[in-house]
Design a protein around this nucleic acid. Structure first.
Lengths: 332, 332
DNA sequence: TTTATTTATGTAAATAGTTACATAAACACT
DNA sequence: AGTGTTTATGTAACTATTTACATAAATAAA
């Protein structure tokens, strides 16, 4: 009989409850989990004891035995971009609503950091992962044997995913620009090694090709698109009359560049963004953009993941959700 | 001897390592934790076994015994505001750097949800809390007996805190506006029941009073400041020549309103924001603003919390950090 | 009345680690 | 040689829970 100095000697355990209710810990456990037979009067005694001691079961001990932690991990490339921040906000909400907790894992697109987190998932018996990752280490994830739902990517057939219909997004933007008479069109896109970017490009270009319009694409970094690069593109294309940007942030930079080149929006040039971030509807001119259903994506991801955790079948294993063109003041 | 069907029967335990290395689990534990005596050759045997089995210690079992989880919780009012998103990004970085994990708790200013999380903290043996909360349930937090560091608030003397020097921020803004000749000044502030808002107000007003300038304040919601309210304020004060806003987002709305009222910035009206969000330096006109040292605040909060967890003394128990006026194009 | 089933509860093993204590060998110092 | 310290390792108790199994009473069926 020895003693280690611990904090929180105030916290009561299932033993304390058992003692106070004059029953065994097994009975208390049965009451808590509503499993097995418990006499209705005994049940009340236990509930009273729980109430009196302000007892909450220790989730760690439970997790250890059950090999489940009721913790979901969400891996994101970063947190400050509005798109990700809003996804996270929704994901947290749905997660806690379903009585799970959320561990944030900010990969910062750093494979090193992502690997570090992969080990942690095992160490904590993480129940499931919501994955938004640009590094393609899908095998490492599979090896974990933990349910995964991917957002924005579809790296394999056997891992369920949800993503915006980026091809459709590209088409919507191109159709709009073409329909309002744009003929010299630029696509300021994200890094073209990302599937989502290529899909947008494909959709966009398919429409332009149909209309015999040549498209110029410029790759930019999503996290820190270079304002000077954008300004240069704008300056060296003085006859450009339509720009499709892969993010609203890029669109805002493009608009700045156009303005300082003396070009009017939308009279001279129409601009379409992507994402529909909060500020887009508030700036002058208000930004026309392709809106992704972030709420729907988050909700689906969390629910699908919990289904997987509960070993339920997932009906559409991969989902492609419609995007929407929000017309505001940067298109004629 | 019975068996419950579990997932991950592939994962090896300390027993497997012990068996493979032909030692006891205690010796393996000593090697892992670098505690107590272990022969250098035995040590190598154990390390080889760990390597071979790809063993990672289960953090839950460890946590259960030690009553520590190496999990830090961060409670925020919401996640989509740039200021909070960036704090979270930094906090996550410093947390994982110090070998802790992060649980995000998005209170959404909902006391109900915050209470729900409070129970969870006990259930998971959360080691510490970084707290940004507008609901004043400090007693509930104290009862937990878990180390806490507060950001942006100082609800009690006995809970360490860090916050921007909001009083100084208010003064800096007022001094700037006064020095460039503004005489009819409006303060578009946050909800004045928040201490940070009152402190900014106090600093701001102290300077105005010195200069015999009357100040008009309008309270706005931080999360969803009403554009029409702002437009009304602007319209009903056609002689206003300076506006101090409690957030950059409010400033952007104010600028839109001023523009559509035909007022030029900064020629007719100077505008100063607060926060220095990413987009502020990129818009036209580029926003003059008060910048809070978010990186420093996050770093300090995490380090201070870990000191508390390790029962080290905290030297300045409360910290007030300097803010900075970033002059750009919305002030003369 | 005897047997089978349902209800109720307790005992103890199990989860995966850490560590106090026991034990013993190796080493140093009288 | 005898004693004390350092080094090395193992045994088993301990963390807070769940649950398989044992046991027994109550109830139902034969």
């Amino acid at each position: 009989m020895y003693n280690v100095t611990h904090r929180g000697d105030t916290m009561s355990t299932i033993k304390d409850v058992a003692k106070l209710a004059h029953v065994s810990v097994a009975t208390v456990s049965r009451v808590i989990n509503q499993k097995g037979y418990v006499n209705i009067e005994t049940r009340q005694l236990v509930l009273d004891a729980i109430e009196k001691l302000n007892y909450v079961p220790n989730e760690l001990a439970r997790s250890l035995f059950q090999k489940k932690s009721r913790i979901i991990a969400v891996m994101l490339p970063h947190l400050t971009a509005y798109y990700f921040a809003e996804l996270l906000e929704y994901i947290e909400t749905y997660t806690i609503d379903q009585n799970y907790r959320l561990m944030v894992c900010n990969s910062q697109d750093d494979p090193e950091k992502e690997s570090k987190y992969l080990r942690i998932f095992d160490q904590y018996n993480i129940d499931g992962i919501i994955l938004i990752s640009n590094t393609h280490r899908i095998d490492d994830y599979k090896k974990l044997g933990i349910p995964i739902v991917e957002i924005d990517h579809k790296l394999g057939e056997d891992i369920p995913s949800i993503q915006s219909n980026n091809y459709q997004g590209g088409k919507l933007a191109a159709n709009k620009l073409v329909s309002i008479g744009c003929r010299k069109i630029i696509h300021l896109r994200g890094p073209s090694d990302l599937v989502i970017v290529r899909e947008r490009s494909n959709g966009f270009n398919s429409v332009l090709k149909e209309n015999n319009i040549i498209n110029f694409s410029y790759d930019l970094d999503f996290r820190a698109p270079s304002p000077t690069d954008i300004a240069n593109v704008v300056k060296s294309n003085p006859d450009c009359d339509g720009i499709f940007c892969d993010s609203d942030y890029i669109a805002i930079l493009a608009i700045q560049a156009l303005k300082s080149s003396g070009r009017r929006i939308p009279e001279d040039v129409s601009v379409i963004g992507f994402d529909d971030i909060e500020i887009a509807s508030v700036l002058t001119p208000k930004l026309t953009t392709i809106s992704q259903p972030r709420k729907l994506i988050s909700e689906y991801a969390v629910n699908a993941l919990i289904k997987l955790i509960n070993k339920e079948k997932l009906d559409p294993f991969h989902r492609n959700v419609d995007v929407k063109l929000i017309e505001r003041d940067t298109t004629k």
